[in-house]
Design a protein around this nucleic acid. Structure first.
Lengths: 204, 204
DNA sequence: AACTAGTTTAACCAATTGGTTGAACGCAAA
DNA sequence: TTTGCGTTCAACCAATTGGTTAAACTAGTT
């Protein structure tokens, strides 16, 4: 056989280039020629390995979508105390997204544009196993440790406070007149500020 | 003259159709033919009135971007007490965005893709006059009414909690298994829950 | 009725783009 | 060395798309 590792290498080169272009430009804005150029090869190779733009996009999107969610699933499903979970969630999520700042915009945008069936193909039928977290919140409410709150609202708040700044970066920088350096320092602070903000809100 | 009101009508029809298509599909995904079809007229008319796709897009975007920000500027700049401001901000913003749920995704997405110069052309050089709000927050901190917090973090938190759910709707619905009816009920509750969440967090 | 100027349309055009094809290439087995 | 098969590429193709044009239409003016 000729391939085996050369194949892997080429395929990986394509996937990496495709990731860059798709994440930056989106499905509609991405050009196969652009991907080929970044991968340093002929455009026909993209079709040789992945048949079509849609297929290639789906491969890239599934991989990126996987990075966007489940890494935090473990934290939220662990048996740590609620406040610890919140602190870990915020820190890990903001850290992860800082390494891949365009990811939120990419995922959010494509999820809004692709048909609803697409999300099921990517993430499966049922949502995150968030029940454990929900019962934990209800428990802490009953024990009188935290104020009454709809657990779903809490989850969305946690996600919003972590994810939004990446999608809204240009707007935030315009409003606050921060340059890039300021912004990333600001995000570094958020790793503790957001956790504090949430816990301060729900603690009795 | 022939036009005067017929002109207005045609131009408005185009702008409305363009708004629908651009907001739904984005600049890259939008098709001039699609806009013409929705406006019920010949494609050449789009160019007759707006020269090019870019020009038409810019017109639409500027109008939508204006709706996205300044309506809340008044609230934040008013002389109401801080907690009242927060309550009003959250209620008005979520209400407004509910009427135009695709707006956040559209603005956020295009702001990330268009060159940085574009945002200045759309919203002007300087950010929102948020200084008054910042000093107000600092005052309340000094008076011991609220806990110490970076006012910028507070502003971003407020924006995040209001805007994110619209951009993240598909993801939220997948995670929480809410259908559309559930979701909009959930958003209705947010109008008070988010304000409570924020105020509970910063109140001493 | 004839003229004029703004408006609307069908047909057309050039460029871009996703995708295909057949030939060339390279390496291992025979 | 030759054969064979997986890989790579230049050239090509058909469809789409933003944009143009020249003719037709409409209504106010003379």
């Amino acid at each position: 056989m000729v391939n085996m590792e050369k194949d892997q290498s080429t395929e990986q080169k394509i996937l990496e280039a495709a990731r860059e272009v798709f994440v930056e430009k989106g499905m509609d804005g991405a050009r196969m020629q652009d991907i080929a150029d970044r991968a340093g090869m002929n455009k026909a190779l993209l079709h040789y390995y992945f048949r079509s733009k849609e297929k290639l996009f789906e491969k890239v999107f599934i991989e990126q979508a996987a990075q966007f969610l489940p890494q935090v699933g473990d934290i939220i499903m662990s048996d740590a105390p609620l406040f610890t979970k919140i602190e870990r969630f915020v820190d890990v999520y903001i850290t992860k997204l800082t390494e891949n700042p365009y990811l939120p915009m990419f995922i959010l945008n494509e999820l809004n544009k692709q048909p609803q069936s697409f999300i099921l193909k990517v993430w499966g039928e049922r949502g995150l196993p968030v029940e454990m977290f929900v019962t934990q919140v209800k428990d802490e409410i009953q024990k009188g440790i935290i104020k009454p709150i709809d657990p779903r609202q809490l989850v969305v708040n946690m996600a919003a406070l972590c994810i939004f700044p990446f999608a809204g970066k240009p707007m935030i920088q315009w409003v606050t007149q921060m340059n890039d350096e300021d912004f990333w320092k600001f995000m570094e602070q958020r790793k503790i500020e957001v956790a504090k903000f949430i816990i301060d809100s729900i603690r009795k």
